[in-house]
Design a protein around this nucleic acid. Structure first.
Lengths: 226, 226
DNA sequence: CGGACTGTTGACGTCATTCAAGATAAGTGG
DNA sequence: CCACTTATCTTGAATGACGTCAACAGTCCG
């Protein structure tokens, strides 16, 4: 991982998918590429926001913290951008961003970003990005409010598998405790939920999970009560 | 409430705040204004989405339903627009929208909306709107995950009062059971939470709530555990 | 006056967290 | 490469918060 990025790399991101070479140049020229190590903090709640972040490599968790508790709002992967709201709105970050493993991030200064969103094509891409995240957050609220821990985990595991797949094997993309936080439960509850799913045709070893019967899990989620 | 809206009315919405007369004409021309009565449904989960909705009068709740449970994602007021995601993404609604009391709504067909977002000024306004909603939803996740019922209610009540106000009186904007659902709790829990807050300087009668000491409530929310 | 709706209160049950300990895995230095 | 330390994960038992069920009190409207 180094501090250089080419147009090709930006072109692969959702934000700059169809952008002209001219714009990409402008972006690469005016922005900075930073690398972060595991657990390193990009920003914290309350800090002044002066740039937006575009993930090039690795993953970053955005979370809230209060009284020892930890609520993961989202996990950003390559191609995703964040901290838009802080730039456009309050001017301060309202959450904390922390690298999950090593990351490479393009950091676009606010003034440059303000110019970029005047380009209709980019603005529309941003709108798409935002609605997607809105959807993800809505799903998260739904999951937390209307499902219990075991169901939430089942739902999450299914979201990792290809649609309508039969027996299949998945590798958990993060540490279990991080997934637990993302699903709004304690690590202990996560562990127990995983245990419960054994009786619904699931086996696991380390981070490798085998779903013997995705259908049964799907039923579990849809079900009124477990 | 009737089916007519003027440019002035649109001009007051966040979306069309600075729009040209030409655009407003286009919108008024191509859209439909509908009125809904209390509890009436605008759309349900899974239905095809062919328009976006802009609230002119009244309020509308967006919620998810599963196994008898009810999770309110947001409550839209005058000037707010929704169902963007359904238009831009899946083509189907992922939640249910229901009128709270009587409502008047501008319904903009998808094709017209697609043309509108090519206008950079409108696109930027939409981006602002979306980031604001993203913030609201993030707050909601935070509230549900890291506060308990009494704290959530305190936090909500404070959000209804002017910032840094002293002793003050608020009127709950909705039925208590709706607020309860919005805060992710049962009506009974809401009632008890309200009870608990009595010892923190709160009195209430019907929907009128008096906060003797907003500071104490704020402390309650910030506090690690209640 | 009677019925439906909204909100309150109490008793009880359930699920998830909390606390504590142990097991497994991973990383470190000799 | 192995002993040792440090994280991560699992398991058990106890607590506690919230939900559930049921009954009742106001309130609104016909």
């Amino acid at each position: 991982m180094d501090g250089i990025a080419g147009q090709a790399e930006l072109h692969r991101t959702e934000l700059f998918k169809g952008a002209t070479a001219e714009i990409l140049d402008q972006v690469l020229e005016g922005s900075e590429i930073k690398t972060y190590t595991n657990r390193q903090c990009l920003f914290r709640t309350g800090q002044l926001a002066d740039r937006i972040f575009l993930v090039l490599e690795g993953q970053i968790q955005i979370y809230l913290r209060r009284g020892g508790k930890h609520a993961v709002l989202s996990i950003m992967g390559p191609g995703e951008a964040f901290a838009l709201r802080a730039i456009l709105g309050t001017g301060r970050h309202t959450g904390t961003a922390e690298a999950i493993g090593g990351c490479r991030v393009l950091e676009i200064p606010a003034p440059l970003f303000s110019r970029l969103i005047c380009d209709p094509a980019i603005a529309i891409r941003i709108i798409h990005m935002l609605t997607t995240r809105l959807q993800a957050l809505s799903d998260q609220v739904g999951r937390i409010q209307l499902m219990q821990t075991t169901q939430r985990l089942a739902d999450y595991l299914l979201s990792l598998t290809p649609k309508d797949s039969d027996v299949c094997e998945v590798e958990l993309p993060f540490e279990k405790s991080l997934i637990a936080a993302y699903l709004g439960m304690e690590p202990e509850s996560f562990s127990r939920a995983l245990m419960n799913l054994r009786s619904h045709g699931l086996t696991c070893e380390g981070r490798k999970v085998r779903l013997q019967s995705p259908g049964a899990l799907k039923a579990l989620c849809t079900e009124g009560r477990a």
